[in-house]
């Protein structure tokens, strides 16, 4: 059964999303005056696209050496036993060794925190970074683990049956963050 969604309200339109990403990058710059190398790891899917956009802005506005990688956390999920359908695996890509580096983890939405937990585990299997910080575009409630983002684009509280949808033009033809209502099925 396909889950159906009904649009409820728009949180960020194209311009607002662009401005939010720019604000995130200036916060990151202000917060890290002494950085030389920054490894930005985006969580598939969509976190990796946001990571690239952030990287492009940071490359233009700083003298930092920026590396961009992709994390696919499927093999690290703790809910493999609970939800269907069977998740399709994607590849993880680390640009180089992350030992002793500053790592910025990027995702589109933070909800339960379990994805970030998986991502941290995967990074730790790859090396020992100096520090890991977390940037998200949307912070919604419902955390099940003690994880907080360092940089947040927008925070929102959702009602029952409400979901966040992040659309990016690279995969969805347009830039938009909206709240939708789940019409049927379980979320």
């Amino acid at each position: 059964m396909n889950i159906q969604f009904k649009d409820k309200r728009i949180l960020l339109d194209k311009m607002e999303m662009q401005r939010t990403i720019e604000r995130l990058s200036s916060e990151i710059i202000k917060d890290n005056p002494d950085i030389e190398v920054l490894c930005i790891m985006g969580i598939r899917k969509r976190g990796d696209i946001l990571a690239k956009r952030l990287a492009n802005i940071l490359k233009k506005t700083t003298s930092w050496e920026i590396e961009v990688g992709v994390l696919d956390i499927t093999l690290y999920r703790d809910d493999l036993t609970i939800y269907g359908p069977k998740p399709i695996i994607g590849s993880t890509y680390f640009p180089s060794s992350i030992d002793g580096k500053e790592v910025l983890l990027v995702d589109d939405v933070i909800y339960t925190g379990r994805t970030i937990r998986s991502a941290l585990d995967e990074i730790m299997d790859y090396g020992r970074p100096l520090r890991i910080k977390l940037a998200v575009l949307v912070n919604r409630g419902g955390r099940e683990l003690p994880i907080l983002p360092d940089y947040t684009g927008i925070s929102v509280e959702l009602g029952e049956k409400e979901e966040i949808q992040v659309l990016l033009k690279e995969t969805d033809k347009e830039d938009m963050v909206k709240v939708v209502e789940v019409k049927n099925g379980i979320r």
């Binding site: 093999l75 690290y76 493999l80 695996i89 993880t92 890509y93 060794s97 585990d121 299997d125 790859y126």
Partner: peptide
């Protein structure tokens, strides 16, 4: 396709996933 992604694990410093 899944095997190609699995191959990436074999190139890591810690060649193990908890899956």
């Amino acid at each position: 396709t899944t095997a190609e992604h699995m191959e990436e694990i074999l190139t890591r410093p810690i060649k193990k996933a908890p899956t």
